[in-house]
Nucleic acid binder design. Structure first.
Lengths: 137, 137
DNA sequence: CTAGTTTCTCTAGCGACTAGAGGTTCAAGA
DNA sequence: TCTTGAACCTCTAGTCGCTAGAGAAACTAG
């Protein structure tokens, strides 16, 4: 049996965040002591680890909610879970592609400073001037 | 002389966003008509393009504010502008590195579905199980 | 002059937390 | 058993960068 602090230490999820997940309905409301404090079991520990893992992977809470609902209806086709993961993979790939363009751009800009004064600072000029970009963003 | 709608069409920045930038102090308060409507000149058009470009590159508004303040004090050393760009480049590189790890992970997870039922769906299992990850995140 | 578009301000909402106030409960040591 | 201090409770508000909507006023073309 874990207090919310135990759960927090074991999962690395901060206490207010645990309460927030409960409020969002992805972590079920814990049993309480006589004095109204939350007490958790291994089941919640596992679910919180699942949530944490999903969040680390960048899945929004709404998708996590979908996955949990799915896993609670074990005879539904797993098609949906697969779709959620695939869609997210696609989104991550797009983000990477965009960020790499930005990286090139920033490298160009950051290389432009010759240590002078702001009035002729190439960083500021480069940031002012969209036309110099080698790729649209 | 541009209305806020003109400015919006020319820069692709939505009208409420322009007003928001004014409120945040990175776009200076425009002149007004008798009837209190904003009227802009090319100077604001350019600044908005600058802001837009910075935002596209992912710079937070606070950094943009710093850069603008800097460009308004043209005899300050451009050292700070350079630092802002370099720091941001660093942050972008870190984000890319992290996202690539996530991509590998998601690819592994998304490949795990064999079309069965949710009760033995490998996507859900993979998401439950941190230990299977090939890289920490 | 009128009708329809644009603009105004103000407030509230998004997502995923995070921080703080002010009060209560728990657990360990004396 | 009592005390003390840590941990916990709820509630509200703040973060960031917008975005949406209400209701009213101003502009512009015919």
């Amino acid at each position: 049996m874990y207090s919310i602090g135990d759960l927090s230490r074991r999962t690395g999820v901060k206490i207010p965040t645990i309460r927030y997940y409960e409020q969002m309905g992805i972590l079920k409301a814990a049993d309480r002591t006589e004095g109204n404090q939350r007490r958790y079991f291994d089941e919640e520990l596992e679910r919180l680890a699942f949530i944490r893992h999903c969040r680390d992977l960048g899945l929004p809470i709404s998708s996590i909610r979908d996955l949990i609902r799915l896993s609670e209806h074990p005879h539904a086709p797993c098609h949906d879970a697969d779709r959620i993961a695939k869609e997210h993979l696609e989104a991550v790939r797009n983000r990477i592609a965009r960020l790499r363009k930005l990286e090139r751009e920033l490298r160009r800009i950051a290389a432009a400073c010759d240590g002078g004064e702001a009035c002729d600072c190439n960083v500021i000029k480069a940031l002012s001037d969209h036309a110099r970009c080698q790729s649209e963003h």
